[in-house]
């Protein structure tokens, strides 16, 4: 190659590399908040319910899953619980699973809550908050709608407004 042409190529490469490095760094800074987002594979987990039975997310493969993260002290969680319960009662359990994950509370607190609000749908307890951390839960309640292939179709942060809303979302992921 002609030396001047070679020099131009080297200069171009160095300048572009630097520009790419700056661009990459800025991009990373603005996207550093880790989340589990729509389209991601829902991280698998095994947790125990109040009766001591183990529940494994991947066992529900082939079914759609609504995964709700909540705590007993959280008022917006309390608000949506009856809606979820009502939906659960009329659910086609062969196709759709509702599962709620309590964040880090005691057996007593969860059992007490279930009794008080007459909850029948399965609740598992994330004692060490490992699952909560893996799903990068910020404000609660947070609800994931997971399709039959285990991919997250939608993430709802905050209290869900009505039964109808939940049914609507569930119908979207129903296999």
């Amino acid at each position: 190659m002609h030396p001047r042409k070679k020099r131009l190529v080297i200069r171009t490469v160095i300048i572009l590399l630097l520009a790419a490095a700056i661009g990459f760094t800025i991009y990373q800074i603005f996207n550093k908040d880790k989340t589990v987002a729509t389209g991601d594979k829902a991280p698998d987990f095994v947790l125990t319910d109040v009766n001591g039975h183990q529940v494994k997310l991947s066992d529900f493969k082939g079914k759609a899953v609504m995964l709700n993260f909540w705590a007993t002290w959280c008022d917006p969680c309390k608000k949506e619980m009856p809606y979820i319960e009502n939906v659960y009662k009329t659910l086609n359990k062969k196709k759709i699973v509702i599962l709620a994950v309590n964040i880090g509370e005691s057996q007593f607190a969860v059992q007490n809550f279930m009794d008080k609000y007459h909850i029948d749908f399965p609740i598992v307890m994330d004692k060490n908050r490992d699952v909560t951390d893996a799903y990068h839960i910020g404000p609660i309640p947070t609800t994931f709608f997971i399709n039959k292939d285990g991919e997250i179709e939608e993430k709802v942060v905050g209290s869900m407004p009505s039964e109808k809303y939940i049914r609507q979302k569930l119908s979207e992921i129903e296999p």
Binding site: L18, A21, T25, I26
Partner: peptide, 13 residues
């Protein structure tokens, strides 16, 4: 901040 990162990048260049 983006402008500080750019400043350092330009210094590198």
């Amino acid at each position: 901040s983006w402008w500080f990162v750019i400043l350092l990048g330009l210094l590198g260049l």
